[in-house]
Structure formats: structure tokens, C-alpha cells
């Protein structure tokens, strides 16, 4: 089957600009005028809309597959054991119900509570935007290669690049900081702390408050709320104060 519609790159760019632009902007008229020059424009717009939607869908599906890699699979965890009531002692049933109720309320409280650690982490974690990737010095090539993939949110790959540099630069604050953030973005809070702690690693450097911020987030993810509070108290900054207030609420 051959593609039904041939769209040139110029047409493609123009139509995408039209689809993405702010309808209230002054450029609307100009864009509309340019569009009228494209033959069969309505069909082309419809085609591009559809392709864009499908690309977004496939990316979402691909991301979902990646998310699943973060689920730990226990091979023995394939059966759900349900105790049959007739085999149970009636007293035990009541105990079981009581325990289940207590646990359910606990879990419910944890998740419904306005500021559960899970919610605080999810709403405050935003990966550091990264450094500008200008590849100058050849000895920093690996670091910037890592930075390029880090900016694409490919944290695993960034970690691979940066891990190679670590044996020679164990104390480098930039390397430790970005490794810590990348591991945290990957959902591995314990590993991120290996690079973000102790805070003295970042003393007198530009990362001290930011490192404290991500260390606190890692601790929140691990449920160590008091430690996170202490850290944020010791390293005030606008977003650290905001995070601290969220923990106090």
C-alpha cells in the first residue's frame, strides 16, 4: 500500500506550526494565508493530525512498557491465597477482620492524607534541567554525552556514561550531583543517596542547596521524613523551604 498523501517538508512544518500556534496570536492571519497556498490543505492537516496523534500514542505505550520494568517481580508471587472460612477458627476470623480493618484504615489514611510522602515526592520531584551541552574539552566528552541523554530523560543511559567517569572523579561534585538526580529520576532513591550524601561533598560548591533538595526528596521517598526536614532546615532555598512547608502541613 502506498501513502495516499505526499506532503513536503515545508508543508509539514507550516501545518505543524499552525497546529501548535497560539490561536490568539498576531501570526494567525499570516499563517492562515500561507496555508491557503498549500494544495489539498484540509486533507493534509487531517493527515498530520492523525500521524501526530499516533506517534504520541506509540510513545505513551513505549513509556508504559518502560514503567513496567520498575515493577519488581517475585516469581513466587503468582498465587493469591484465600483462606477458606470453614477451615478457620471463628475467633481467628474476627481477629483477621479486625487486623484487616486497622490496616485498611491505616493505608487509607496514608494515601488520603493530603501530604503523604508519596504525594509530596510526586508533586515536588522535578529533575534538574541539566547543564548546557557545549562539547569543548575532549576530556569532558563522556560527561556531556551523558548530559545530552540526561536531558532527553534517558536517565539509565546517562548513568552509564557518568559511571564510567566515577573511578577517576570520585569527589567531583557535579558528577555526584547529576548521578544522584538521575538515579532518583529512575525511582532508585537508595542508590541516589550514595551520590548525594554526605552533604559535605557539596560544601562551598554551587550544588549545595540543590543537592540537599534531592537528598531530602530521596529520604521522603524512603519515608525518612524527619531526616529530610533536618536537611531542608539546614539548607534553606526557595524550593527547599517550599518542600519543608509541605512536610510540615
Amino acid at each position: 500500500m502506498k501513502p495516499q498523501i505526499e506532503i513536503t517538508q515545508l508543508e509539514w512544518d507550516l501545518i505543524e506550526r499552525y497546529l501548535d500556534h497560539n490561536k490568539a496570536s498576531d501570526k494567525t492571519l499570516l499563517l492562515n494565508e500561507e496555508l491557503t497556498q498549500i494544495p489539498n490543505v484540509d486533507a493534509k492537516i487531517a493527515h498530520i493530525k492523525k500521524v501526530r496523534e499516533q506517534i504520541e500514542d506509540r510513545i505513551r505505550q513505549s513509556k508504559i512498557k518502560e514503567f513496567h520494568e520498575h515493577i519488581s517481580v517475585d516469581k513466587n508471587d503468582t498465587k493469591v491465597n484465600i483462606l477458606s472460612p470453614e477451615k478457620m477458627n471463628p475467633k481467628l476470623i474476627w481477629y483477621a477482620i479486625a487486623v484487616a480493618l486497622v490496616v485498611s484504615f491505616g493505608v487509607l489514611w496514608m494515601f488520603q492524607s493530603r501530604n503523604s510522602p508519596e504525594k509530596i515526592f510526586a508533586s515536588h520531584f522535578e529533575a534538574d534541567p541539566g547543564l548546557r551541552t557545549v562539547m569543548g574539552a575532549s576530556n569532558e566528552y563522556d560527561f556531556y554525552e551523558g548530559m545530552v541523554v540526561y536531558k532527553r530523560q534517558e536517565y539509565k543511559e546517562a548513568i552509564n556514561w557518568w559511571q564510567k567517569l566515577l573511578p577517576e572523579k570520585t569527589e567531583n561534585d557535579t558528577l555526584n550531583y547529576f548521578l544522584g538526580v538521575a538515579y532518583l529520576a529512575e525511582g532508585n532513591a537508595e542508590k541516589s543517596l550514595e551520590y548525594l550524601e554526605p552533604a559535605t561533598k557539596f560544601n562551598d560548591g554551587i550544588f549545595i542547596e540543590d543537592a540537599a533538595h534531592y537528598t531530602a526528596l530521596a529520604k521522603i521517598k524512603l519515608g525518612k521524613i524527619e531526616e529530610a526536614k533536618d536537611l531542608l532546615n539546614a539548607h534553606p532555598s526557595e524550593r527547599n523551604n517550599k518542600l519543608l512547608n509541605a512536610l510540615k502541613e
Partner: peptide, 20 residues
Amino acid sequence: TLLDAFLTNKEVAIREFYIA
């Protein structure tokens, strides 16, 4: 927060929700 994450494709927050 969560709706905002879905609308703007904030990967980390969406992944946390998936896992949870």
C-alpha cells in the same frame, strides 16, 4: 498534581502512579 502530570507528560510522576 497527577492530572497535570498526565496532561504535560511528566514521566516520573506518571511512573510513580503506575507502580503504586
